[in-house]
């Protein structure tokens, strides 16, 4: 005899969620259009830039780049400025760029990975015509939502954390001839990676979730989803303009704000992810 509880109270099945997430990841892993930006962008951010800054810091210092950095340091709060005391111009360039200026830009990686996978998972499914069969399965709306959410969120976090490890190695190796010691990461970066990176990933996929109902192709979703980097760019320019600085407190506050936004988007997503509304648009 079958159990007959209501679907609204049916037990949440993690095996189903795991299967859905694994399925989406398999499809993403075999799609060049989705995979390519997820490999190329992190490579530029975590290898090319720190290596370039480390290797060419002495030349940049002699070319007068340190004057710009000097102005940047002058705008910094006094306690933070003290951290640069006793550094050579080349060391200032390395530490200010790799540790401070680059911190908000690093968030582009989880944001981009999450929004790319989510675009492929939510909107790409519609585009590939595979959504209807999925909606006819016994999965509940919540399981479908959770499967798709985890399929984007987990790889974005893993790639974010992996990128941080590579960035740590490249930053220290590339600038060894300037710094002469392991100078990276500091406490602010540890907080950034463990607290803010997962929240930034949530923001990327939440953004796609919000627009997924209004777009019909992966490319469309991917392009509109590019808007998620705007807050990151504001943080970068905010630092350059002396409006805000990435220190431990700022990172903890930023993380708390992003988690709050994520929670609101997930709450909205759970309420609006209804198969009868989704299938009406298929």
């Amino acid at each position: 005899m079958n159990e007959r509880p209501s679907s609204r109270t049916s037990r949440f099945n993690w095996r189903v969620v795991h299967t859905l997430a694994k399925r989406d990841l398999k499809i993403v892993g075999r799609s060049k259009a989705i995979l390519l930006p997820m490999v190329v962008v992190p490579l530029i951010f975590i290898v090319a830039i720190p290596l370039g800054v480390g290797l060419f810091a002495p030349q940049m210092a002699s070319a007068g780049e340190s004057e710009d950095l000097g102005r940047f340091l002058e705008m910094m709060p006094a306690p933070m400025r003290k951290a640069f005391a006793g550094y050579t111009d080349a060391q200032i360039i390395v530490v200010a760029t790799i540790q401070h200026l680059f911190a908000p830009m690093f968030l582009i990686i989880p944001l981009m990975v999450a929004s790319t996978i989510a675009a492929g998972s939510y909107v790409g499914e519609k585009e590939r015509g595979t959504l209807e069969a999925l909606l006819h399965t016994p999965t509940t709306d919540l399981e479908l939502f959770a499967g798709k959410l985890l399929a984007a969120w987990i790889p974005a976090c893993v790639i974010g954390w992996g990128s941080f490890l590579v960035y740590t190695v490249v930053a220290n190796v590339g600038a060894w001839h300037v710094m002469g010691r392991i100078y990276f990461p500091n406490a602010m970066w540890i907080a950034l990676v463990t607290w803010v990176v997962p929240a930034a990933a949530g923001l990327g996929l939440g953004m796609i979730l919000l627009i997924s109902a209004r777009v019909s192709t992966f490319q469309e979703a991917y392009q509109i989803g590019g808007v998620v980097v705007v807050p990151v760019l504001l943080l970068v320019f905010g630092q350059l303009a002396g409006v805000l600085y990435f220190n431990l407190i700022a990172v903890l506050v930023l993380g708390a704000i992003l988690w709050a936004v994520d929670a609101a988007m997930i709450w909205f997503g759970v309420r609006t992810f209804r198969r009868d509304e989704i299938i009406a648009r298929v």
């Binding site: 079958n2 159990e3 007959r4 509880p5 209501s6 679907s7 609204r8 049916s10 399925r23 398999k26 499809i27 075999r30 799609s31 590939r128 015509g129 595979t130 959504l131 209807e132 069969a133 999925l134 006819h136 399965t137 016994p138 999965t139 509940t140």
Partner: peptide
């Protein structure tokens, strides 16, 4: 409406387009 997941365990659907994952 109320017991969709339980019903769908007992039904199979061939949708109008095959709705298969082509990458798999």
């Amino acid at each position: 409406v109320e017991e969709g997941p339980y019903l769908r365990r007992q039904t199979g659907v061939l949708t109008e387009s095959p709705s298969l994952d082509e990458k798999l």
